[in-house]
């Protein structure tokens, strides 16, 4: 399943994922956004891994924000946000 969302004035987020027994699996987050450090991309995708397929946009965004807060060191997102990733994921799921 594939979903996209472009933050107005910002960048495009694309999500590819599967749903297995009601949960998100094989989540892949890509796009033309800026992210430092690049390793944080795995944290963003990993935060959605295993999430219930019926989770709301807010719940998905919260999972991502929480995972990023736990990342050692400072993470910078430019042109997108946890909310943008969550919206792309919701679009993939609907």
């Amino acid at each position: 399943m594939h979903g996209e969302y472009k933050t107005p004035g910002g960048k495009l987020v694309q999500i590819d994922l599967d749903v297995v027994e009601g949960h998100l699996r094989n989540v892949r987050v890509t796009g033309d956004f800026f992210l430092e450090p690049p390793e944080a991309l795995d944290v963003i995708a990993g935060a959605l891994e295993g999430a219930p397929a019926d989770a709301s946009e807010e719940e998905l965004a919260h999972r991502i924000a929480r995972a990023l807060a736990g990342f050692p060191g400072r993470v910078e997102l430019l042109g997108f946000s946890p909310e943008a990733v969550a919206r792309a994921a919701r679009r993939a799921l609907s």
């Binding site: 892949r28 890509t30 033309d32 992210l35 690049p38």
Partner: peptide, 9 residues
Amino acid sequence: IGRFQSLRN
């Protein structure tokens, strides 16, 4: 291509 882009997309 950018660091976070999908090659085939």
